[in-house]
Simulated assay, not measured.
Amino acid sequence: MTTSPIRTIAAEWDWEASLPPAPAVRAGDTIYLSGQIALGPDGSLVGVNDLAAQARQCFANIRSILARDGATMQHVVKMTTYFACPLTDEVTAEYWQVREEVFGTHRPASTGVSVSALIYPEVMLEIEAIAVLAPARHA
């Protein structure tokens, strides 16, 4: 009997369990996280009209999901951030400041995309992440 190298990382919060997507899926040594919005553990939106507070909560959710499978933010190799707010210089600076707080000198590859809306009108951003647990192998 063989086991699949693909498995779902379990939901921890009630609101996660009620949603169709898995919080994350692990395929081999790679963890693919569903996009995270600024919902706190109780399911309420954190930081209405506050991009920095929402970004911090998104990253806190990512950190929590990664920890469920033994990973940290230092394992993140790629992120995509979807912004549903005007991307002014101030907004961009706030986001980069929070990212630096979260990652320090670690610099995952990243893409930022401006979108017209996300799942709830008050949500200003959503962040997807990919993490790799195994060290890179060189040929």
Rank of each mutant, 00 (worst) to 15 (best):
3 T>R: 00
61 N>A: 13
139 A>R: 04
42 D>Y: 06
6 I>M: 09
21 P>T: 13
48 V>S: 02
8 T>F: 06
49 N>F: 04
39 L>T: 09
99 R>H: 04
130 I>D: 07
124 M>A: 08
119 I>Q: 01
5 P>E: 09
101 E>C: 10
73 M>S: 11
37 I>C: 08
16 E>V: 15
94 E>L: 14
1 M>Q: 09
133 L>A: 14
133 L>C: 10
43 G>F: 06
88 T>S: 11
42 D>K: 01
16 E>R: 04
102 V>N: 00
122 E>G: 02
99 R>Q: 03
85 C>Q: 06
3 T>L: 12
29 D>L: 10
98 V>L: 03
48 V>T: 09
19 L>Y: 00
110 S>R: 03
133 L>R: 01
138 H>N: 11
129 A>R: 00
63 R>Q: 08
80 T>M: 12
16 E>I: 14
55 A>F: 02
58 C>Y: 00
70 G>K: 01
48 V>K: 02
99 R>T: 12
68 R>A: 12
36 Q>V: 12
122 E>Y: 04
59 F>D: 06
29 D>N: 14
111 T>M: 15
62 I>R: 00
54 Q>V: 12
81 T>S: 14
72 T>Y: 01
135 P>Q: 07
29 D>W: 08
79 M>A: 13
63 R>E: 09
66 L>D: 08
76 V>F: 01
78 K>M: 12
3 T>G: 03
107 R>P: 01
53 A>H: 01
41 P>R: 06
109 A>W: 05
41 P>A: 14
37 I>V: 15
111 T>N: 05
18 S>Q: 02
27 A>L: 11
62 I>N: 07
58 C>T: 04
125 L>K: 00
25 V>Q: 05
129 A>N: 01
